[in-house]
């Protein structure tokens, strides 16, 4: 290989590396923007609606409690992947705001269950509708192949992020 050939090869490699860097930077920006914008849009939609006293974190606690179930505090905390202490604080606030009620277990009065009130159920349903609309709008311009590609890509991202989450969780424990 002559010097000129090496220089030419180097120049192509640099160009490729630069393109790769641009791609990485673009993917990074997109991921951060999507993550941030979904959270902000969710929060704004809540603020404008009939349940403006709910934060997104509280809305996700309602989702963790579930529309019909009456799980125990420890079951609900496990579903939300938070401690029972954190859940107790969140539930106290949601009870005060009228979205959640505490029930004593019929068979064992020592066990406390949490359940959505009527107001909680309505907030849950409206929030679910928000997510449904978001996904419908996202899928609307895509044909079947596009939808399958999107799902595959999202599954890959989800798998990767979950793996990182598990790794850091283990490290912290």
């Amino acid at each position: 290989m002559t010097l000129n050939e090496i220089l030419a090869y180097q120049s192509i490699s640099d160009e490729g590396a630069s393109e790769m860097d641009d791609q990485k930077s673009h993917v990074n920006d997109l991921l951060l923007e999507i993550f941030e914008n979904i959270l902000v849009t969710e929060q704004k939609a809540l603020r404008r609606g009939s349940f403006s006293d709910l934060s997104i974190a509280e809305m996700h606690t309602l989702e963790g409690i579930g529309l019909y179930d009456a799980h125990t505090m420890s079951e609900t905390a496990a579903r939300l992947e938070i401690t029972t202490g954190t859940l107790t604080v969140a539930v106290d606030k949601l009870v005060r705001k009228g979205y959640v009620e505490r029930l004593r277990d019929e068979a064992d009065r020592r066990i406390v269950r949490v359940k959505l009130t009527r107001k909680g159920k309505l907030a849950y349903r409206l929030h679910t509708k928000f997510h449904t609309l978001l996904v419908e709008r996202l899928l609307l311009p895509l044909d079947e192949t596009g939808k399958k590609t999107l799902i595959r890509t999202l599954e890959t991202i989800d798998g990767f992020v979950r793996e990182q989450y598990r790794r850091y969780n283990i490290t912290e424990d």
Binding site: G49, S50, R118, K121, L122, R125, L126, K129
Partner: peptide, 10 residues
């Protein structure tokens, strides 16, 4: 509206 439909549902 959506909220009223869900009220009906509940």
């Amino acid at each position: 509206d959506s909220l009223a439909i869900y009220e009906l549902v509940v």
